[in-house]
Simulated assay, not measured.
Amino acid sequence: MSNPEKSPFRAMALVSIISTYIVACTLAGVFIGIWLDNKFETQPLFLIVSLFTWLGVAFYAVFKTIQPFLGD
């Protein structure tokens, strides 16, 4: 029997989780930023701030996800 720690399905699941975090947070940042820009009529301001904020959230989530695999 194969070692479950080195399963290719586990690696594919981890890659799927990471890519989902990055894509979902990027889309959330763009849509929320555009919505706030249209609401307050400040065209690129909230888009940029929201995008960078949500990208920070995405990379923090990715870091927390891969932290058990990094070791000591």
Rank of each mutant, 00 (worst) to 15 (best):
residue 5 E to G: 04
residue 50 S to M: 05
residue 26 T to W: 09
residue 64 K to A: 10
residue 11 A to C: 10
residue 25 C to F: 11
residue 38 N to S: 13
residue 41 E to T: 13
residue 2 S to T: 06
residue 41 E to H: 13
residue 27 L to F: 15
residue 54 W to Y: 12
residue 23 V to G: 03
residue 56 G to T: 03
residue 55 L to I: 02
residue 50 S to D: 02
residue 37 D to M: 06
residue 6 K to R: 10
residue 61 A to I: 01
residue 14 L to F: 02
residue 23 V to T: 08
residue 4 P to T: 06
residue 40 F to Y: 14
residue 40 F to R: 10
residue 39 K to T: 15
residue 7 S to Y: 05
residue 62 V to R: 03
residue 31 F to Y: 14
residue 56 G to S: 09
residue 27 L to S: 11
residue 31 F to L: 14
residue 2 S to I: 08
residue 47 L to Q: 09
residue 4 P to I: 07
residue 64 K to Y: 01
residue 43 Q to C: 04
residue 47 L to T: 11
residue 62 V to T: 03
residue 35 W to P: 00
residue 16 S to F: 12
residue 53 T to R: 10
residue 54 W to Q: 01
residue 30 V to L: 15
residue 61 A to C: 10
residue 46 F to K: 06
residue 31 F to P: 01
residue 17 I to E: 08
residue 29 G to K: 08
residue 7 S to L: 07
residue 13 A to C: 11
residue 8 P to K: 09
residue 9 F to K: 07
residue 1 M to G: 12
residue 3 N to H: 14
residue 10 R to M: 04
residue 53 T to M: 15
residue 14 L to I: 12
residue 56 G to F: 04
residue 41 E to D: 13
residue 1 M to H: 11
residue 36 L to F: 12
residue 48 I to P: 00
residue 72 D to Q: 14
residue 25 C to N: 15
residue 34 I to A: 07
residue 18 I to V: 15
residue 37 D to I: 07
residue 21 Y to L: 06
residue 45 L to D: 08
residue 68 P to Y: 00
residue 42 T to S: 12
residue 15 V to M: 14
residue 30 V to I: 15
residue 16 S to Q: 06
residue 59 F to R: 08
residue 10 R to W: 01
residue 10 R to E: 02
residue 43 Q to W: 11
residue 15 V to G: 06
residue 45 L to P: 00
residue 5 E to V: 08
residue 65 T to V: 05
residue 8 P to C: 06
residue 42 T to Q: 10
residue 47 L to S: 08
residue 15 V to L: 15
residue 9 F to E: 12
residue 51 L to M: 03
residue 55 L to Y: 03
residue 38 N to Y: 14
residue 6 K to H: 11
residue 19 S to P: 00
residue 14 L to K: 01
residue 58 A to S: 10
residue 4 P to A: 09
